[in-house]
Design a protein around this nucleic acid. Structure first.
Lengths: 331, 331
DNA sequence: CTGAAAGCGCTTACAG
DNA sequence: CTGAAAGCGCTTACAG
């Protein structure tokens, strides 16, 4: 392993100078700097991160925190975000560490250890929940963090999100304009996730423009009640005028599609979901999705995380909005 | 931040002794050891990983390597594995770092940096491909690694896998015994993934026992040819006797289900896939899946990674097999 | 513009 | 059974 000392010896310089040159410290003369870089490269120098981190009292890692209870389906989205994050981190010579677990306690232990043992000072939450113990914990520590998804209520922190109201509008407009739908319905879970509320608002907004009547279905996954499939069938029966659906995600969309085909074999309704989480080769001709651009969510989150206080201190809650898009449709 | 030195001072011991006591070095007396542990806990001591790693010349991290080109669908499986891995790593005071990218070069750079800069010496590949540049690279370095999935051809290294032949047999037997199928068909991709070959072998084996005729369909995703859906329809038309399907994964299964319902509205065929990658609330009554136990794959991979050379040196290629299961069916 | 020296928080060979 | 000292590979305040 070649170290700074080795380079210094070879070049008859002091380690201090080499270190400064490599870190592009302006105090070092232009030619020395260039020479050092050249030699370092030639000798195959690789900085030792552990030594660096020890002196800096900060790890060159970003901690990525997964939600404790998530639908397996969302994993598709998360991995897309990870790709974006890592691409951006590599560029900054940072490393990606993750905290994931089956219980809140497990993740808390994980994060505590990241902060106090690994000295990680930058975090990205792949979610943004209300009253989340882990977010609360991190807020109390001297670390920086960004969430994917906007904060709920009056909370303020840095985040990256889509404009879900606009996405809801676009999805609705897509069905009306492109698919000539007369009565799009809105189908969501009973969880009232913030993004569902926003997409619903967008749906309502778009319908009000065209003076169409909105129709809503909340699918409950409570056991003991009627099955989801029965709930969908009931809705279809009671709303025969509905001829297309905006669903809050691709799986709800798929569920609806299945139930509809069971009920009206051979027929199909145009349905649009969000996230592009189904493999494209599964796509039925009546099946569409709003691409939320997971990759960009990742890169943007990193950008925000590395923005210095200065640039953003006058904004109480800084954030970035990522563009969504529907294949073959101009938003 | 409380350090070993602080504890030493408080206890009127030397840092050496405290360090050894904390690491349970047998050279330290039983009572001193216990006392030190007690004090360390009381004072809220947290070891500084960067210092530790610097002295040990090895990071307390395991590098997790994602495949470059994977179907988004598999992400569901990967995240399950990550959960298993992390659970096991926490127990050993290890941390999870990941390498993921959109190009081989990107991942190579990532891994090189893990090895030479972060001094990570333990890796888990979430895949096992033939002639993989990244696996080749890692083999040349002085690091330990385990793959998820067995090595191809005559290659030898450590891995964790399911018994995919047995899984194929079980899936087939499930359809015959539980679902009274007379003619299960086998549907796969054209990629000839090792796990597909094995599951096919299991299917054939099971059919031969009952002297049934096997039927195969390979679905090609080549563009320009007929669509997947058309391929499926053609197969169904030409094999009217087929009354159930073993598909090599849940998405191929879902594709088949869709096409079949399009062709024969109102009818449905029993279909079984692998991975349990669809949310359970999507499950149709005719839809089943072999659970490959991603979580256990993760924990086992870590176990293998931490086994010392000694325990395994007499086996040229050490591995662990993870049990699969079908809900409501005894394999 | 460059260097000598101290320090980050651990571990471990050496000494007793 | 315990300790003093050196070292891991960096960075940076201090000095010139």
């Amino acid at each position: 392993m070649v170290t700074i000392k080795d380079i210094a010896k070879k070049m008859k310089l002091s380690p201090s100078t080499v270190s400064r040159a490599l870190n592009n410290n302006p105090r070092i003369g232009e030619k020395t700097r260039r020479q050092v870089h050249k030699y370092a490269k030639k000798m195959g120098y690789q900085p030792n991160y552990n030594a660096k981190n020890l002196t800096n009292q900060e790890a060159n890692s970003v901690g990525i925190i997964f939600p404790v209870n998530n639908r397996v389906v969302d994993n598709i989205f998360y991995v897309g975000i990870l790709r974006g994050i890592n691409e951006e981190l590599n560029r900054r010579n940072y490393v990606l560490a993750i905290a994931i677990g089956d219980s809140t306690q497990q993740v808390i232990d994980n994060v505590e250890s990241m902060i106090h043992r690994a000295q990680i000072k930058k975090f990205i939450f792949l979610y943004s929940h209300q009253n989340d113990k882990i977010i609360d914990l991190v807020r109390k520590e001297a670390v920086k963090f960004v969430t994917i998804g906007k904060p709920v209520d009056d909370q303020k922190w840095w985040y990256v999100d889509n404009d879900n109201v606009a996405a809801g509008e676009d999805a609705t407009r897509f069905l009306i304009e492109k698919k000539k739908s007369k009565n799009p319905a809105f189908v969501e879970s009973v969880n009232n996730w913030p993004y569902e509320d926003d997409r619903r608002a967008g749906y309502i907004k778009e319908l009000s423009k065209t003076r169409k009547q909105p129709n809503f279905l909340q699918i409950s996954q409570e056991h003991g009640l009627e099955t989801e499939s029965a709930q969908i069938k009931k809705f279809i029966d009671e709303h025969p005028q509905v001829d297309s659906v905006v669903a809050t995600d691709d799986y709800i969309a798929l569920q609806f599609d299945h139930s509809y085909k069971d009920l009206y074999p051979g027929k199909a309704m145009n349905i649009i979901g969000f996230n592009n989480s189904l493999p494209s080769d599964l796509n039925q001709p009546n099946f569409f999705s709003v691409d939320l651009n997971a990759h960009a969510m990742g890169t943007q989150a990193v950008d925000l995380l590395f923005k210095n206080q200065q640039e953003t201190e006058n904004i109480s809650s800084s954030h970035l909005i990522v563009e969504h898009k529907i294949k073959g449709f101009k938003n």
